[in-house]
Design a protein around this nucleic acid. Structure first.
Lengths: 221, 221, 221, 221
DNA sequence: AATGAATGAGTTTTCATTCAT
DNA sequence: AATGAATGAAAACTCATTCAT
């Protein structure tokens, strides 16, 4: 009657003890997947824990509660998100430089990035303080910094002044449209819409951003 | 603490009996508010019922289940949403016409419309069939129809061919950006961003859409 | 009305932590009582939980759902039920052996056994697979095994061939009648009916089962 | 916009007004089907109403509540059930008479009768008064009356005294077994068990009931 | 740090029953 | 008599969180 305790070879869950940082990161990785796939409410602590290879109770050793996991996660992810809005250096022919820039931006639009955007839109309201800080300390400064560069080019006569140079962050707008398409439309339509948008985006930028000297300095894009 | 048992005047909950259509609409109205404010999961049947001034059980008299309410709601709201993407007739001076068009579009961006967009993005995945139908029977046809009009103008030499006339639905893109700003940013920043976007949008359209005769026919916008 | 907030002595519900096996068994015990008393539908999870001295939610830690509890319960109870249909060894005088056998059978007809029979009849349809396995792997084999023994006795000339030796499981039939009486009739009538049935049963068996040698081998009953 | 009220040909539910008795019987017929198929709890008022071709609310015009329907139903059905226990007249050759009797009894074991037995066992406890009356005024009197007839035959020397003539209702016992088999076993096994039981039953009765004169009076079976 | 067991507070859903017409 | 609309009460079930070890 007595059941042999794990007789023979059985998959006994070993109690693994990891350093705080490692475990935290595992939890956050798991949480990112679950949250982006299902949203905050539908993502369950149980699923996150099992994906992280630990127990529900252990999540509470490392985080105050579900909201804290979400917040930490979004905080982490919103930091490098800045990069997505920054202009990296580019080549020398202006047309090529712009094309390369556009390519890079649309290439960065990975499924993961799309998921995070969705999460931000759908659940951002849960972490208003975080959003505000992100907005005030990341998004707006990045806009300003970029705008300052553009302004200096215009002042230096490198670029012609135009509505677009006056509000340079506007240049990102079509990319957001593409992201939203990926979120709401079927994959085929989304893909088609993205291609069309990218092409129009490219052509319009080429038309709107005219460098006086015909060449943009490396720093621009 | 002791509640008088209906002493004197009787505030007894009278049972209100309404026609199916009226009650259904009340429920849908309540549901729209709750769903847009909280999302599908966080919105509760109890809250929707009380907002609709009826009982939980009565919701189930009028709808199969929570999903059915959501679906009905989105279906209803996605029908006239077509209008938001259609170009209504406009005046005669091209600059004025375009300005009026832009004004109208940004004016239509009511809080309710913003909420619905959020719902669509955040919860659209719940009703894939609905989304597909909306996409195939509303969004894409509207795009096509609009594009056909523009194409005819270009063919007739009324408008100059340009990247924007080649992909005319691109003209809506900044509006989506403004909507997303309203969803994720703080009201002040969102408002500022909208103003900037609108102005840039206006100027760029003015610049990009050049009518040969300097006048757009009434039918265009 | 005002409840003293745990004044003086503290009857705070201590959280009792038991091993899975113990708790599972407690739940099954409670469930058996509730199910047999009320039937599947009328038995409530809340009642079972409180009878088991735990919370509703904890039932769901140990069982998938209500059906799983029911199925586990019936599975457990249908295993030893085999015994009820098997013939245990007996003494040497044939009359005495048969009397002892009858006594034992009617003595085994405990209220609990009656409840389980009722459950089986009333709710067996919920677990068709289980019933089928019980029938195929327990009831029919037991019949066959018993029949084989009887057949060998007949072949060996120990017992005279008769309709009863041809279909020996028929011998249990009056016991089932007694059980059903206990389920549907009032206790007094049921008891009287059982007595009458038992006596008739005894006499008829004595009359029908005649051993050639006047003695049944120990193994028969 | 105004929806034409049942434009063209539509299946408008006509409000049918029937005499109380007719409607009552329709409800009872529907209820019998639902109750026997599902049991008391699982049978729903809504289903009964729709099967009866009327509305839920109308059931409450004709019956106090669900229990009343059940009780009325069982009362009706328990009346003629008496017949099942009565011995109808038979032919003259004793073997043939007994065979005919057995045939009739097993033939009467219709699916409907089986369902009602199940209902009686599973839900009889809901109507103890009814069961008691049925037991005291139908079952027991029928037993007694039958027994009296048998006793007179024994006294008259028509039948030999035996355990079976002493407790003649015992003769029905195997039939109950067959019914229970039909309830709990799979159809094939149930059928096989019934056949075996019937045959053994027949042979044993033939063996046990010996008429002195070799002929049973018409009144016996 | 880790976890299996436990639970309170909630959720959606069902259903017998009642009300207003 | 009949019924569509309405509802209170309860059901099963879920889940973030906590306790005991």
């Amino acid at each position: 009657m007595a059941v042999a305790k794990n007789a023979g070879a059985a998959p006994v869950k070993k109690r693994v003890r990891l350093s705080t940082e490692v475990r935290r990161q595992q939890i956050l990785d798991a949480a990112l997947i679950e949250f982006t796939a299902l949203g905050f409410n539908a993502a369950s602590i149980a699923k996150i824990a099992s994906r992280a290879g630990t127990s529900k109770a252990n999540l509470y050793v490392h985080f105050e509660n579900k909201d804290a996991i979400f917040e930490t996660l979004l905080k982490d992810v919103l930091q490098p998100a800045l990069g997505a809005w920054q202009l990296p250096p580019a080549g020398h022919g202006i047309e090529k430089a712009l094309d390369a820039y556009i390519d890079r931006r649309y290439h960065d639009m990975t499924p993961q990035m799309v998921s995070i955007m969705k999460l931000l839109i759908a659940e951002g309201h849960r972490v208003p303080a975080l959003i505000q800080r992100w907005q005030d300390e990341t998004v707006l400064p990045a806009h300003r910094q970029q705008q300052a560069v553009i302004d200096s080019y215009v002042a230096d006569g490198v670029l012609e002044k135009s509505p677009l140079t006056d509000n340079f962050s506007f240049i990102m707008v079509p990319i957001l449209y593409a992201v939203i398409c990926k979120i709401i439309f079927t994959p085929e339509v989304a893909e088609a819409e993205c291609q069309k948008t990218k092409e129009t985006h490219r052509q319009l930028i080429q038309q709107l951003l005219k460098a006086r000297a015909g060449v943009l300095p490396e720093k621009l894009l």
